[in-house]
Design a protein around this nucleic acid. Structure first.
Length: 299
DNA sequence: GCGTCCAGGTCTACC
DNA sequence: GGTAGACCTGGACGC
């Protein structure tokens, strides 16, 4: 076992980041309570995975690896992976300055909310987002779990990392339909994996891109299976909040909170959050999930 | 038990 | 550019 200390940036809240959206309930993530612990199997190399977990104590985080990590470089790599997954690089200080002026939403700054839990790779985020479309959350969990197990190098292992593009690319549409039960999403996931494996698309470059949100949105929309909602959702995980990424859950929650349960046109929702400009997608998401910050997280 | 609807949408063909 | 219809799955619901 190895313990690795990790110092988060200012205005970071571990719980609120872990529970920022549903990713914490999708394997290889898992959450344990009392104290809150985020578990995650990482892929250190193509044939080397390691089960880790992160806990918070005061301002500090501690990563516990279930095996002895002898290499300093590997320890640094593990710390960097957790920093990436916990969205350390997202600078929300301009957002907090803006939102503190608004008494309806200043709680977002007080609670240090707004960072999104992310996958080990952007590829993982894209695949999982495709698996959220047009289905219930329980089916998303099922498909994601099936995919991880079906593509694992060692199916007998206790814990698996998320499969690499190469591992999925080596399968077939039939395999993804029948073993992972992805349904019509199978060709989308397979095509993306093969494009990544061939080097036709540098999916990981999205995380460091300085392109505008509009340019990134257009690029994401060019991936089969990524529509307007999915692109907007992925932009949120890139720290870009110009799009609302409306889905049926958001529409329903907005109706419940702001329209007495009556569904409203998307344009009305757009108008409601328009004043927050480049932060409107974040304000909307936090507004609609505010109950998560006072109640038990629903997943 | 069976049929239908729908859930954290997207794609394609057609107009 | 806007829209209708098809698309996998599996749980919920009504009968």
């Amino acid at each position: 076992m190895t313990e690795i200390p990790l110092v988060p940036p200012p205005a970071f809240d571990f719980r609120n980041t872990v529970y920022s959206h549903g990713w914490c309930s999708l394997r290889p993530f898992a959450v344990r309570q009392s104290p809150l612990r985020l578990e995650r199997t990482l892929r250190l190399a193509s044939d080397h995975t390691v089960a880790c977990s992160a806990t918070a104590s005061g301002r500090r985080l501690t990563i516990v690896c279930e095996e002895k990590i002898r290499s300093a470089a590997a320890r640094t790599r593990i710390a960097a992976r957790f920093a990436t997954m916990l969205h350390f690089d997202c600078d929300l200080s301009p957002f907090y300055r803006r939102i503190r002026r608004d008494t309806r939403h200043d709680w977002m700054a007080r609670r240090k909310a707004g960072r999104f839990l992310r996958g080990e790779t952007f590829f993982e985020d894209v695949v999982k987002t495709i698996l959220t479309t047009n289905c219930s959350w329980s089916l998303t969990e099922s498909m994601n779990g099936n995919l991880i197990t079906a593509c694992a190098g060692d199916p007998e292992a206790d814990a698996h990392a998320f499969p690499t593009p190469e591992a999925i690319a080596d399968t077939s549409e039939r395999f993804l339909r029948e073993r992972a039960r992805l349904g019509y999403r199978a060709p989308f996931v397979l095509e993306l994996s093969r494009r990544c494996a061939r080097g036709d698309i540098d999916i990981e470059s999205f995380r460091a891109s300085t392109a505008t949100a509009a340019e990134l949105h257009k690029e994401l929309r060019s991936i089969k299976g990524i529509g307007d909602y999915a692109a907007g959702n992925l932009l949120r995980m890139l720290g870009r909040f110009e799009h609302l990424a409306l889905d049926s859950w958001c529409r329903s929650k907005y109706a419940e909170i702001h329209a007495n349960g009556v569904s409203v046109p998307d344009a009305d929702i757009e108008r409601h959050y328009a004043e927050f400009e480049e932060w409107k997608g974040l304000v909307m998401w936090l507004d609609l999930t505010r109950h998560w910050y006072s109640d038990k997280f629903p997943l």
